[in-house]
Design a binder for these strands. Structure first.
Lengths: 130, 130, 130, 130
DNA sequence: TTTT
DNA sequence: TTTT
């Protein structure tokens, strides 16, 4: 079933890079501020603050080339997980799992140029060579 | 800034229809079960349960023509609001605000104009073979 | 750079299945009739007839389970190729290269795993009312 | 039925602005070069050149603030029209009709800031005030 | 906790 | 006819 989201916005802070304990797979996470086009009250600045998660090679590229304020386009799917907090309360965690993150400004600490090069980790399990 | 999501899934229960106290504007809400394509563990059935909100005429159509189990396509934007719960804790509410809801099955209680049946007029004269 | 399209529509005829001469890779092609929501003239039925191309395993599934009139959701990218016709004229060929094709009606000759029927396991425990 | 496309790319030349003879409605058109992520042959630079059409207030903003090379995000629908050329041959015209065009670089001849302000022409015919 |  |  279809679940596809496209966002353009700016990072509210530098990405955090971690590695899964079990397999050492890279994960980056950050929050995207996506301004709403039409604010409800004329004056007020309104934005949605959307948690993003990226895996593997892209995670490392994000950590390397993005920082607070970077403008990016994110393509992915919306994921809503449930869990219990320490008090045993049912909570829900929302995040966008990115398939791709595109860097849209160049003003940064990078000589990087466009989307990260293709590498094997980007091949899905079912992705047969041509 | 861009914030666009497209979902296909089934309602987990009948939509709820309400009206805003101030202006009497119709709002419908329901939860969409969107199955993930590739379950992480092979066997397990996995889905995201995504809260949807629809306004005005569409809200009333949803209430009228959709029920638990209905298959729909939703197009809209992801909205994340912050609020405080009764204990003064910061919480976050996620929902997709739908611009359009399309009805994808016909088995229901409706004569409504969902996906039109296929008929020959849909074949363009210009529909040349590739 | 981003190029993403999502379509819902019906096949104007049965898909055509072929194999690349060089490698024997499966390709299916068909045309999707996508009705426009708001017809310009009130009365007239209007649709876009969009050529779709699918590769590999999905191509074979499309050939097997889809036919004229089938309702599908297509996700992919818009591709515009230039070529010269027999008279040496520059032409342009438009098609959507599908990453995924989802089968949205069940009335067909298939036991295939299109949109799963709704069952209670799809209601999350955490599916708290709004 | 659903028809939604999101593109990020650069203008191949300055937009052309015209007005419909009948009603004087503004239309801008330009071509977007959208680079493909993975070139088929490693080396070759590959892009799709996608004709874009924008109406009304947005058309005038595009003409004012965009030029050859500008980076934009376009959201809209894919439209395929048929017509006969002068020789009476059936041809097909492809274009993306933009609902919104977002300006993604600032290096240009503009002090402009983000998406065009809301004005009445952006209200769809069926867009009831709240 | 929020970005330009 | 194609953009960085």
């Amino acid at each position: 079933m279809l679940n596809r989201i496209v966002l353009i916005g700016r990072l509210t802070r530098d990405p955090e890079l971690r590695y899964t304990p079990a397999n050492g797979v890279a994960v980056a996470s950050f929050t995207l501020a996506v301004n709403r086009r039409f604010s409800s009250q004329g004056g007020q600045k309104e934005a949605d603050f959307i948690p993003i998660v990226v895996w593997r090679a892209q995670a490392e590229n994000c950590a390397k080339y993005l920082g607070k304020g970077s403008l990016v386009a994110v393509e992915g799917r919306l994921q809503i997980r449930s869990y219990e907090d320490r008090e045993g309360q049912k909570r829900t965690a929302t995040e966008v799992v990115a398939d791709s993150v595109q860097f849209l400004d160049t003003k940064e600490k990078r000589s990087f140029d466009g989307p990260p090069a293709f590498d094997d980790s980007m091949i899905g399990e079912d992705d047969v060579p041509f």
